[in-house]
Design a protein around this nucleic acid. Sequence first.
RNA 1: GCUCCCGUGGUGAAAUGGAUAUCACAACAGUCUUCGGAACUGUCGUUCCAGGUUCGAAUCCUGGCGGGAGCACCA
Length: 560
Amino acid sequence: MSRMDIRWRLREALENALRDVGLDMPLIHIPTLEHPAELAHGDYSSNVGLQYAKDAKASPSTLAAKLVAAFGAIEGISKIEIAGPGFINFYLAPETIAASIEQARSDEKWGSNIALKDIRIMVEYTDPNPFKEFHIGHLMSNAIGESISRLLEYSGADVKRANYQGDVGPHVAKAIWGIRKLNADPHDPSQLGRAYAIGAQAYENDPAAEADVDAINAKVYDRSDTAINELYAAGRAASLEHFEELYRTLGTRFDRYFFESETGPRGIALVQAHPEVFEKSDGAIVYKGEKAGLHTRVFVTSKGLPTYEAKELGLAELKLEAWPADESITVTAHEQSDYFAVVVAAMKEFMPDVAKHIHHVPHGMMRFASGKMSSRTGDVITGESLLNELQATAKERAAESRADDIGKLSEQIAVAAIKYQVLRQASHKDIIFDRERALSLEGDSGPYLQYAHARACAVAAKAQEQSVEPRASGGVEPSHLARLIQRFPEIVEYSASELEPHLVTTYLLEIASAFNSWYAQEQIVDGTPAAAHKVALTEAVRRTLKNGLWVLGIPAPEKM
RNA sequence: GCUCCCGUGGUGAAAUGGAUAUCACAACAGUCUUCGGAACUGUCGUUCCAGGUUCGAAUCCUGGCGGGAGCACCA
């Protein structure tokens, strides 16, 4: 029996009861069913008694009592109470909870749903730029984008992961200028970030350098200079290969790559084909966003080069040609929100069918307490250095580990630590980067969840050794832990509909914490008949943590 | 200046307009022969200010104050 059935039955019971007491009210637009924050308040709770007290000309608790009297028996519910100012609290029957536990431990896809079945969604995220650092902001975009992709997949959607990388543009020219200045090796990705910072600073402070960079920029676009082409090809390839290593570590596999070198020409063509939408201004071609309540942005520069804006138009077209998605999601930092609004406003005027599928998901920024990170000044923390630092800390900690491969384990722990820090909070909010907190492996952390999972694995293994046959019993009063497990599928569905991974993170922390407390006070494999139920519960925890961590894009090692 | 986002214990966060605002870190006091201490138990301590809407506001509205981001040839 699925959770959906129960929610549906409760809603129906509420609607029928309202009709019986003479209130024919639709429940569609009012949230009438929720999970009470406090488990003592039941598994589901309804506020209709409070909502409709006025219409019923009765006090909330009187109305609630009348409704409860009208319910009759509801399948799967064993107890109904009226509490507080007039809430109706529903308690699931022990057999219903036991059925969920059995499903959790035996169904590999426990927690998935079909709310988005067969909907094609392209999710673009990470978007680092070749020749620049892969910094912790990209790590943030990657963690959020990957988890959103998985949430959508777990809701039945057909998802393609896309990565859009800026392989042309002024930043590339600045880096090439810097490579020449430093006589750096373009094949070595670790030298490119510094080359870019040198170039960027010279561009601001030295007019001669500025002219040089502009000239290089034009040549990168038109490919006319052999020497520059060579530096460009080497640096581009080295950057991209370096990024691939990081994606492997982070657990992302992209299905499609798009580059600004492809989107640029397309974008210019689109702009030029629509003089009714774009206009000339000071030699540049702009879109006057004011007509849509926004601001003006440049799409093609006075030198005839495409800006990010024009490229975005080309990208939209290229994406659709690559794969006809129903929905196109772009995950970027919120500093790009206004930019996106203007581009989409322009698109609506001449490619409305494309524009209506585009959905921008802004996330917060990784910041230092002292301010914004900037690769222009070299004031950044690279994704690689943070991962390495975390891995070293994890390795020290793993001295007495049971894992076979400490190197791999410490990498998994490092990934968990950084992703958890990003995915534990609402994604649109900024994160102040705190090294000590980022390196912490205790308490509210990714490794804490991994540890609880490994612990559950160890107990399950012991039970198997002792030939304990797990089976959830409907004969015992459902525990706090059992009732939490039962909520998992709804949490995933809600998290996917909100595109908010942190709802899953918060829930998993609750599960792990409840499991650890229970574990501390209870011998699970205890040689008595009660072990069957307790082992079933442990296996259900293991599966819930494993699948939940998967949704977050965090690895779940069986031994730590 | 205009637009958007954010203000929750000492610190970092959670909370679908609901019930006694939930966690973690730090601090303090404990648990330890157990199936894994990256753990567990306890103590301490919180909704920026002023109005408003509502049966009910951290959440919605208005106005302040504070922080961040964006606003023409960067991405």
